[in-house]
Amino acid sequence: MTEMDPGIQYMQGGKLEEAAKYFTEAIEKHPDDPVHYINFGNLLLHMNDYERAVRFYSRAVELDDKAATAHYGLGNAYFEQEQYDQSKQHFQQALQLGLEEADTYFMLGLCFLYDEQFKLALPYLQRAVELDEEDVDMQFQYGLALAQTEQLDHAKEIFHQVLEMEANHSDAYYNLGVVSLFEEDIDQALTYFNQALEIQPEHVLAANGKQQIEKMLEDNQ
Rank of each mutant, 00 (worst) to 15 (best):
H169W: 09
H160S: 08
G177V: 08
D185C: 03
Y173A: 03
V179A: 08
E157P: 01
G177H: 08
I186M: 09
V162Y: 02
Q161I: 10
Q188H: 02
Q188C: 04
F159C: 05
N175I: 07
S170G: 00
I158W: 10
D171I: 01
F159W: 13
I186Q: 02
V178Y: 12
L181E: 07
S180G: 10
K156W: 03
Y173G: 02
F159I: 07
I186N: 03
L163A: 01
N168M: 07
Q161F: 06
D187S: 13
V178I: 14
Q161H: 10
I186T: 14
K156C: 08
K156N: 04
L163N: 02
Y173H: 15
S180D: 12
L176F: 01
V162C: 00
A172T: 04
F182P: 08
Y173S: 05
H160Q: 12
L181F: 00
S180N: 13
V178M: 15
M165K: 15
E184V: 13
L176H: 08
I158Q: 10
D171F: 07
G177T: 08
M165E: 04
N168S: 09
H160G: 00
S170K: 01
D171R: 07
A167H: 10
S170A: 13
V178G: 08
F159N: 10
L181N: 00
N168T: 11
Q161S: 05
S180A: 15
V162R: 00
N175M: 11
H169F: 09
